[in-house]
Design a protein around this nucleic acid. Structure first.
Length: 201
DNA sequence: TAGGCCATCTGGTCCT
DNA sequence: AGGACCAGATGGCCTA
């Protein structure tokens, strides 16, 4: 389990010792003492006065930082695992190129919208009184949310960086209002799907 | 080589 | 006090 981290840890520790000691905080500490085991003499000296406590404070701080780094690394790994799980649930492309993080999120967003829209329209066709059905109301599970036409663009616009997947949102199911859209129902998911794919608009 | 994506470190803030 | 979460910074890798 931890084998993954052990490598990283060793690296990061080295990295950390360089940067932390010398760059960010090291300027304050003349001897860059805290890390390496000091000779006993110095330890004795420290026991008398404040020097020791300062050094130990540094050590404690550093340990705390290392632990925090480790937790953060773990947290990000968990996040990535969740993202991978999400990728696994989404339809796969023949292309097989792995979706980036932002692409995964956007695709999932569109895909969920398309599926819920499909359900909604299927319900309509299944014989509910035409007047009954709240026409443009939210999809069952998603509330008002993901109608990509409105909200999605803003949330996905975070990727204003543009180049990779520009049209995912605008071209995705922006305005499902028209009744004749029903005939396209089956294609909605695919549409969201395709509209997302980088390179395919 | 520039730009995109990613992993990691780091300090700050909030919560328990 | 310690942990979780977040956002900024940095550096590496890859691709057009």
């Amino acid at each position: 389990m931890d084998s993954v981290y052990s490598d990283i840890d060793s690296n990061s520790c080295d990295f950390f010792t360089h940067t932390d000691d010398e760059d960010s905080r090291g300027s304050a500490s003349p001897l860059r003492a805290p890390r390496s085991p000091q000779p006993e003499q110095q330890q004795k000296k420290r026991r008398r006065g404040r020097a020791r406590s300062e050094a130990t404070v540094q050590v404690v701080k550093k340990n705390r930082r290392l632990k925090a780094n480790d937790r953060e690394r773990n947290r990000m790994h968990n996040l990535n695992d969740a993202l991978d799980a999400l990728r696994g649930v989404l339809p796969a492309f023949p292309d097989e190129t792995k979706l980036t993080k932002i692409e995964t999120l956007r695709f999932a967003h569109n895909y969920i919208w398309a599926l819920s829209e499909t359900i909604r329209i299927a319900d309509l066709q299944a014989g509910k009184a035409p007047g009954d059905a709240p026409r443009l109301l939210s999809p069952p599970c998603l509330g008002e949310a993901p109608s990509p036409g409105s909200d999605a663009c803003s949330w996905s616009s975070s990727g204003s960086s543009s180049s990779s997947s520009p049209a995912y949102c605008a071209s995705s199911p922006g305005s499902p209002a028209a009744p004749e859209d029903y005939s396209y129902l089956q294609q909605d998911a695919l549409f969201a799907f395709r509209s997302f794919v980088p390179g395919i608009y």
